[in-house]
Design a protein around this nucleic acid. Structure first.
Lengths: 212, 212
DNA sequence: ACATATTTTAATCAAATGATTAAAATATTC
DNA sequence: GAATATTTTAATCATTTGATTAAAATATGT
C-alpha cells in the first residue's frame, strides 16, 4: 500500500538516507526549475535529470507545485536572507554595511548567478503566490535605512538601497546578454565583479556625500 | 479555401484594416505574453483576451511561436533601440548622453515597466533563440565607451555602462517586489523615478570623477 | 527466513493545449 | 445580384503533461 512519508518523521530506522532519491530529485528540480522557470519545466524533465521514474517524483513531493515551492523558498532565503541581517546589524557603520553587502552578495551570486532573474520573474508572472512571503517589511525600517536618513535627510533613503542593490545585482541580471554577445566572457565577467567589490562601496559613499 | 495573407501584400483593395482582428490579436498577445511569459501563456488566453476564436489566431499568425516572436522583436526594439542611438551620438558630451539615457529610459519604462524582466528572463530561459538577435555589438565600441575610456582609462569602461543602466533599469526590475510589499506604492514609485532622472546623472558624474 | 514496511517501476488516466479542418458568414468585385 | 475572395466559427485531432494506480522489487525488523 502506498504511504507518503512526512519530512517530520524523518530518518527513523538505521538506514542512512545517503543523499538518496529524495535529494536527487530535489537537486534535479533545482537545476531544471532554475533553468526553465516553473511553467516551462516539465516533471518528466526533472525525473529524467534525476535518473528516476516520473511516479517517484509525485510519490516524494505530491505535486510539481510542492516541489517548486521547496526550491523557491530555498532560493528566496538565499537572495533575501543575505542582505537582511547585514542591513539590520546595529553594531557596524553605514560604510561597513555597504562594503559587507557588496562583497557577500557578489560572492553569493557568483555561485548562483541566475537567482535574481529566477526569483524576480517568477514573482512578476505570479504575484499572488508570493503575497506575505516576501520578508521585506524589516527592510523598510532597518538600521541601514536609519543610518542613511541621518546622513542624507534630504533624499528618500530608498534611493540608496536601490543603488546599492542595483550596482551589485544588475550585472547578474544582464549576465545572459553579456554571455551571448561575447561582450564579457566568463573570465572578464568575474574580473569585473572582483573589481566591483571594491568599487561599489567607494561609489556608494561618493553618492552619499554628493550634496545637491 | 484557406489563404494565409502575407504582411508583404498588405492592404490591397479599398478596405481599411481599421485596427481590426489582426491588431486585436497582436494587442492581446502583447498583454498575455508580457504578463505570463511564453511558456505559461496559452493561445486560448490570447484568443479570449482578443475576443476572437482560437482558430483565428493560428489563421493569422500560423503558430504561438510566430506570434511571440512578433511581440518579442517589438519589445527588444524598444528596450535596446532607445539606448543605442544615444550611446553612439558623436555630437554630444558624455554628460549629455548620461542625462539623455536616464531620462529617455525612465520615460520609456514608466510606460512599460515589465519590459526588462520580460526580455531578460526569456533570454535566460531560452538563450539559443536569441543568438545573433542581440544588437549589442555596436555598444562595445560605441562613442559612449570611447568617451568613458578617455575620462577614466584606469577602469574598465563596462563598469560605467552597467552602472548607468543598473541605476536606471533596476528600479523596474524590483518593481514587483516594491508593489507587493507596499514598500513603495505606485505614486511613491513614480516620485522616486522623477527624482532619479535628475539624480542619476549627478551620481554617474560623481563616479566618473572619483579617483582611486 | 519470514513478515512487514518502504522504495521503485510500468502502464495508464484525464485534462490541457497547440493546431487543423471544413463549413458558415461576411465582404468585395464585376 | 451573382461570383469570388476573405474572414470567422464550431468541432475535432494529436500531443503533451501532471498525476495516479497497482504491482514488483528491495530493504528492514524480529
Amino acid at each position: 500500500m502506498l504511504c507518503f512519508h512526512d519530512t517530520d518523521m524523518a530518518k527513523k530506522k538505521t538506514k542512512v538516507p545517503d543523499l538518496s532519491t529524495e535529494e536527487k530529485i530535489k537537486d534535479a528540480a533545482r537545476r531544471v526549475f532554475m533553468k526553465k522557470g516553473y511553467a516551462a519545466a516539465r516533471t518528466r524533465d526533472i525525473a529524467e535529470e534525476a535518473g528516476i521514474n516520473l511516479a517517484l517524483l509525485n510519490y516524494y513531493f505530491r505535486s510539481k507545485e510542492k516541489l517548486f515551492e521547496l526550491v523557491m523558498v530555498e532560493k528566496m532565503a538565499a537572495f533575501f536572507g543575505t542582505i537582511h541581517p547585514i542591513l539590520n546589524d546595529t553594531g557596524i557603520s553605514l560604510e561597513a554595511k555597504i562594503a559587507s553587502i557588496a562583497e557577500k552578495y557578489i560572492d553569493l551570486l557568483s555561485q548562483n548567478p541566475d537567482i535574481p532573474l529566477f526569483i524576480l520573474s517568477e514573482i512578476r508572472m505570479n504575484p499572488d503566490q508570493f503575497i506575505n512571503k516576501l520578508p521585506v517589511a524589516k527592510v523598510l525600517d532597518s538600521h541601514f535605512i536609519k543610518q542613511v536618513q541621518e546622513k542624507r535627510p534630504d533624499l528618500h533613503p530608498s534611493h540608496f538601497l536601490i543603488n546599492l542593490l542595483g550596482l551589485t545585482v544588475f550585472p547578474f541580471i544582464m549576465k545572459p546578454v553579456f554571455q551571448m554577445t561575447g561582450m564579457l566572457n566568463e573570465k572578464a565577467f568575474h574580473d569585473r565583479l572582483e573589481e566591483r567589490k571594491v568599487l561599489i562601496p567607494k561609489w556608494l559613499n561618493a553618492m552619499l556625500k554628493l550634496k545637491p
